[in-house]
Amino acid sequence: MTDAATQSAQARRPSMTIRMLQVLRDLVRRPSGLIGLFLVVMHVVVAIFSPWFVPYDFKALDSSLILAAPTPEHILGTDALGRDVLTRVLLGGREALWVCFLAIPLTMIWGGLVGVYLGLRGGWVDEIAMRIVDAFLALPGILPLMVLVFVFGAGNEVLIPTLAFFFGIPVIRVARGATHDVVARDYVLAARARGHSRASIMWRELLPNTLDVMMVEGAMRLSWMLLTFSSLSFLGFGVTPPTPDWGQMISEARVYMSLAPWGVLGPMIALSSLIIGVNLTADALAKTLGIDRTRKAVV
């Protein structure tokens, strides 16, 4: 290796990891980012480690303690079957987080790639594809999900691709919009003039320059997806009992809300703190990356 090459090898531009760390550092400097990230990390840690420190077995029924008020033994009381609410709250986010954390990358990859492609391709292909997207967007969000879960069952192998598919559709729109901003730039024109293939232009010129928008979009979609997952469980289409889940817990406990409000409050606070955390993080991320969400509206 020549001298110059060695020298420049040391001065490489910051790698992807370093860039991510920089974004993270700027993120926690904002109050909203700090609070949001704290809430998200807390939920993730609890979800991973809760099986080892929950006070009771989540399936353990105690017929002597039905809808019992909070006591030092049962800090959040018990539910209609006499199960410890705290235990079930601690475990109740595991399914939601697991499914959504797997589905979001899929969502962003398929929605992002299709959107960027359409933004670059334009013409009649774009025109037809966007009308199909519009048609899907016109469906009330949760209805097709419910039908598919009803037909194919509520397993994760059904939920993850289904969620990823339906959440990817609005992402197409956002990715296409972000691409339109980039496609007009001269470096894309220069690449076209050199005769690069469409795939090469997408990979080298468009994707790196739409990444910021997609990251913010992904964070926003995550919060929506968590809410949708819980709604499905609430309606009885999500997690199969007895596995604890917040949506399902709220659904079961709301019947006794006037008798035992703790049964609803526990999972509600858990779910909302997670969603608020994700939203705050997404907002702070948008500000850190300089993306104006009021202009690039989330569809």
Partner: peptide, 16 residues
């Protein structure tokens, strides 16, 4: 080959 008016716009900001 073509050279463009504004180098701010003709070089991809994410590429070395």
């Amino acid at each position: 080959q073509m050279i463009f008016q504004n180098p701010d716009d003709s070089l991809n900001p994410r590429h070395t």
